[in-house]
Structure formats: C-alpha cells, structure tokens
C-alpha cells in the first residue's frame, strides 16, 4: 500500500490545467508545420500560419491558446495499491481546477442550472471526472480542457446492428459535415463504437487523449481510422471551414463489446486546439 496525499493531486491538477491551456502539444504543432505547406487552399494555409503564430505567442507570453479554456475533463487512473490521505479526493481535484483556472488567468465557463438561470460558478468547477482502477501503486492524471464549440457538434446514435461498418462510416462523416466551420477545423475526431449509450461516449472522449498521427494498434480499427480520415477530408470543409483539403487532423476509433441488440456510435469532435496534458504520480 502506498499513501498519496490528495494535496499532491490537487497541485498536479492545477499545473496541468495551466500547462494544457498555454502549451500546444508537439504533435499538433508538428501537424500545423507540415500543413502550412501541404494545404492547397490559400485561405487554409493562412489559417495554419496564424495558428502557428498563435501557439508561439501563447507559449512566450503565457496566454491561453484559446479564450475557451473549457470545462476541465480529468481522467484519473488509480492504482489499486494506492491509499489517498489528507482529505477527499474529489474535492481536491475541484480545488486543483479552482486554483489552476484562477492562477493561470483562464476563463471560467461553467454554469449551474443549465436550462434555466445558467449562473456562472465563478471558478470553473466542477471537474468532469472519469476514474478507473488499475493494477499498481501509481496515479495517472490526464487533464483535457474541453471547449464548447466542438463539443456542441458532437453526436451519438444507436444504430441497428444490421447497419454495420457502412452505417458507422456514414454517421461519422455526416457528423463531421454538419460540424463544418462551427467546430474550428481542422478537427480531431474521436469515435467510440459499441458498449452502451454512455460507454460509447466515454470511449470517444478517451480516444481524444491520443497523439495526433498515432494509429490504433488493432489493424481493423487502424484501417477504419484511415478510411474515415480520407472521407472527412474529401468533404472539402478545410481549415476553419473556408474550403480546403485538410478538414481533420486525425480520426481515432476505439471499440468495445456491445449488446446483441445494439450498435452505439459516439462521435466526439475536438477543435484544433487539441489540449491534453498528463502526469504520473
């Protein structure tokens, strides 16, 4: 049994929130650097140029890459030999979000009573927390600030099993087509297939934690990812929806066993400000 003080988790969450919002990952920056030459559309190349400058300004001036610093989505993998001490783990994670969003001058975008008063909580809490128990005595924290524009264009469908692979492809491509310029392309598209209603959505969200340019190690999923990427780019939406060859940076697919009656498909859209940072304690 290993003891971990929740204060350590709290401080890590605060650091991750700031780091994610200021420092665009090397995978995304590298994509922009290639795309600024490869995109055929002049307006599209101009977008990539501005996004590269934006990432540089954010990094050097300590400014958020995007004004939408999101809700704080936290994936917590807890080793089963860990014993948390020093207080309540959930409260510590919210306190980490509170401190990170205050100290980092990040925007507070969380409102209570979402279909009535919509009152801002003022500190961007609560975190959206997904916890899993794994072997070992370590804790892995992944924090992803998730903006509203792309999240709003995400969708889930309970397909009929007879629709099979073509049904999955059509639903993903249709969702990306509808998202268009609203979701700040070039997008990253996270797809969860199978499991249950909420399980598919969680698979889709979790897939967005992968690095741009990575492929699923399972060939049948990697092959589906490649086809979806081609089909999405053939839409012609392009950077910022101004027309162009590059509509998506990547498509990630994860699947899980489904009920004999079901074929759930969740499509979680991520804007180009694909921010997530991770630490292992």
């Amino acid at each position: 049994m290993r003891e971990i003080d929740v204060a350590e988790i709290r401080d890590a969450v605060a650091r991750l929130a700031i780091d994610a919002c200021y420092h665009l990952g090397d995978d995304v920056v590298g994509f922009f650097e290639r795309a600024v030459d490869e995109e055929e559309s002049e307006a599209g190349r101009d977008v990539f140029q501005q996004l590269l400058e934006n990432a540089a300004v954010a990094r050097t001036e300590n400014l958020p890459l995007c004004q939408d610093t999101g809700l704080a989505v936290v994936f917590l993998e807890v080793g089963q030999d860990v014993h948390f001490v020093g207080g309540d783990l959930g409260s510590a994670i919210d306190e980490g979000v509170r401190r990170g969003y205050a100290d980092g001058f990040l925007r507070k975008s969380s409102v209570t009573a979402p279909f009535t008063e919509r009152k801002n909580t003022g500190d961007n809490t609560p975190a959206v927390l997904h916890t899993s128990i794994v072997p070992g005595d370590r804790v892995k924290i992944t924090l992803a600030p998730k903006g509203g524009g792309a999240e709003n264009m995400s969708a889930l469908s309970m397909l009929k099993p007879s629709q099979g692979r073509p049904g999955v492809v059509d639903f993903v491509v249709d969702t990306v087509a509808k998202a268009g310029p609203n979701a700040c392309p070039p997008m990253v598209v996270g797809v969860g297939v199978g499991s249950t209603f909420e399980g598919a959505a969680l698979l889709a969200k979790h897939s967005l934690m992968r690095e741009v340019g990575s492929s699923n190690p399972e060939p049948r999923l990697a092959e589906l990812e490649d086809e979806l990427e081609r089909r999405c780019n053939d839409l012609g939406i392009g950077p910022q929806g101004l027309g162009g060859r590059i509509t998506v940076m990547d498509v990630f697919v994860e699947d899980a066993p489904a009920h004999i009656a079901s074929l759930p498909v969740a499509v979680n859209i991520q804007c180009h400000s694909a921010r997530h940072k991770q630490v292992v304690i």
């Binding site: 501005q50 996004l51 954010a58 939408d68």
Partner: peptide, 9 residues
C-alpha cells in the same frame, strides 16, 4: 469570420 482558436494572437 476570425480564426477560431487564434485567441492569443
């Protein structure tokens, strides 16, 4: 349209 996500710039 302005470039979405170019907020620091």
């Amino acid at each position: 349209a302005a470039v979405g996500g170019a907020a620091a710039l």
